[in-house]
Nucleic acid binder design. Structure first.
Lengths: 141, 141
DNA sequence: ACTAATCCCGACGAAATCACTCGGATATCG
DNA sequence: CGATATCCGAGTGATTTCGTCGGGATTAGT
């Protein structure tokens, strides 16, 4: 996706090209891109000189959206939910109080992911522009 | 650990007891408790009427410490590090810019975990006392 | 001293997930 | 036509997770 962000605006980029640039197997990328297409993040053009491109500008695509498309809903644990229906599935839930913690962790991960967009990670267009407002802590410890 | 927090101050608690209370296999708990002991979080008393107890008050044990003891250093990805030595191991690191994101996510998880202590999750001693200062978002959406 | 309760230790195993691989069908451009 | 692409579905090998199993060492009560 970072590669697609770099190529944004210059027509479709082929998987073979991205595979070379990122040193990843093409066949593997094919698998990943299916989820991205289903999520509406990329559009494909078939045939020669075809390939994939982002459907929206990199600045408007938070990383959380990319990750959710690739890996499903973000959840550190099955129990990281505030859905009351959860009690029916998890037979431990009557005694278990740890639930709250997982929800917090989940939200923290979500916020961190959504605090950066594809543009922040694609150094060609704009230099990295971190958003220190949302995450209070600076990157250097 | 939540069970141990509940029993805090009343002498050692046996694994068999905790296994019954939490509906988990005793043999499995034995494995887990090894890491906790090595991390200095629990102390063991051998022999009849022995068991385990927390070495510190539940209020002083952040969940991050428990999780780190059980699962090693918190890292959503191998690449979630600001250690410059990482470049030597990850041959992609020259081109890869996603590193920053993983560090952010890691820190967000750490902060979320460390924002609650064992006491917050053991309802017997004190009611849950969330710390809305560190995590801006309230628990109820 | 004996016994029962308890921790201690190391090895093993089933299931799920991750990071791919393989083979072929279909569409498009020149 | 033929080269370059995406599309699609099934299969694989390594690793991790969540356990099981069996036996040994240590201590409290009697």
């Amino acid at each position: 996706m970072v590669q697609l962000a770099r190529h944004f605006g210059t027509g479709p980029a082929s998987l073979a090209g991205i595979a070379a640039e990122e040193d990843l197997p093409r066949a593997y990328l094919e698998q990943l891109v299916v989820s991205l297409r289903d999520a509406g993040l990329v559009a494909s053009t078939r045939g020669a000189h075809g390939g994939y491109e982002l459907t929206r500008a990199p600045e408007t695509i938070p990383m959380g959206e990319v990750l959710r498309a690739l890996e499903g809903p973000i959840a550190p644990m099955m129990c990281a939910t505030d859905d009351p229906e959860h009690g029916l599935l998890c037979d431990r839930s009557a005694r278990c109080t740890v639930n709250v913690l997982w929800v917090r962790v989940r939200d923290a991960i979500s916020d961190a992911l959504d605090s950066m967009t594809l543009a922040d990670l694609a150094p060609t267009t704009t230099p990295i522009q971190p958003d220190p407002v949302i995450q209070g802590a600076p990157i250097q410890p």
